[in-house]
């Protein structure tokens, strides 16, 4: 009996940890490597219709307890990503992350991802640093409803929406996803942030602002999942600052059926293995016979 097995609605994972979008998921080989290192699934880099080089460097900076990045959605375009998807899907469960500027574009991308072998799609409705995409559409309930419902009509695989914490309307947007038939919610994306270098009197990132990730955002993410669980019925996937099994357990107890890890992989490529063994030890010691029994435990 594998106590770490979890179900995100219809999608079964043997391990609850998923590689977050944008980390070690630019090529099929890097995703395959992560499956071998204990990840239950991998979300691809966000893929759009056309090739994009993203923002000029600096696109990344370290701060105590986290990172601020503005990669700017670099990606080879959906057509250029086919081979990587097929390589990755052969090796494990792949969730295709996509971004677009309209419901139609999202749907077309989702259809391609399904054809390439994706087990689910994750709609990036929350990138904080690419103009015209992400956060700018992901904070409007009507837009979110129309995108999710259009994608749902186009594919058979589960459809997850990745939401931004940069709004006071988080649960309303979550409800819009659920009402439109969405199969799950991924929260949170990065927090909109800026770093200035006083010596040169300018923001460090070429894009000026970016998204904060890493341990600094974990309590914000845990709170977001807790709020969403309290008002929604669809499965949740927690993400934001997870570095160890305790962080993962917090997200699960707040209401997440699975979790994603991104920033922690920079310093420790083996972090999934450590989280898996830590979670197993904890579950045994505290009498949780399955991940399902832990999901939302902090609400009782």
């Amino acid at each position: 009996m594998n106590v770490l097995q979890t179900h995100i609605g219809a999608l079964k994972l043997e391990r609850p940890g998923i590689v977050a979008s944008g980390i070690m998921d630019e090529t099929g080989d890097s995703m395959a490597r992560m499956f071998g290192l204990g990840a239950g699934a991998a979300v691809t880099k966000s893929i759009g219709s056309e090739r994009r080089e993203g923002h000029r460097n600096p696109s990344f900076i370290e701060i105590p307890y986290g990172y601020v990045n503005a990669m700017g959605l670099p990606n080879p375009g959906i057509e250029g990503f086919e081979e990587e998807m097929r390589t990755a899907a052969k090796a494990g469960t792949v969730i295709g992350s996509i971004f677009g500027s309209s419901a139609k574009e999202f749907s077309e991308l989702a259809v391609r991802m399904e054809a390439y072998g994706a087990s689910a799609v994750e709609l990036n409705l929350s990138c904080p640093h690419a103009k015209g995409y992400g956060i700018e559409m992901g904070t409007d309930t009507n837009t979110v409803r129309s995108i999710v419902s259009s994608v749902k009509d186009s594919v058979k695989i589960p459809v997850y929406a990745k939401l931004t914490p940069n709004t006071h309307l988080l649960t309303e947007i979550g409800k819009a996803v659920q009402d439109a038939g969405g199969d799950g919610i991924v929260a949170i994306n990065t927090l909109k942030a800026m770093v200035i270098a006083p010596e040169v009197a300018m923001p460090v990132l070429s894009n000026k602002f970016g998204g904060l990730s890493g341990p600094a955002v974990k309590p914000v993410g845990v709170r977001a999942i807790y709020d969403l669980r309290a008002s929604l019925d669809i499965p949740l996937i927690g993400v934001g600052g997870i570095c160890g099994w305790r962080d993962a357990a917090e997200y699960i107890m707040a209401g997440a059926s699975a979790f994603q890890v991104g920033s922690a992989l920079g310093k420790d490529i083996n972090v999934f293995k450590k989280i898996n063994s830590g979670l197993e030890r904890f579950m045994k010691e505290f009498g949780y016979s399955s991940i399902k029994k832990m999901v939302g435990a902090a609400h009782e």
């Binding site: 070690m24 630019e26 990344f60 990045n69 920079g266 310093k267």
Partner: peptide
């Protein structure tokens, strides 16, 4: 390279990160 710190994957070669591995 973009991040240089093992995260973004822009420098991978066969899944190995030139910056971190």
């Amino acid at each position: 390279m973009k991040c240089g710190a093992g995260l973004c994957g822009s420098c991978v070669m066969d899944g190995m990160r030139v910056c971190e591995d």
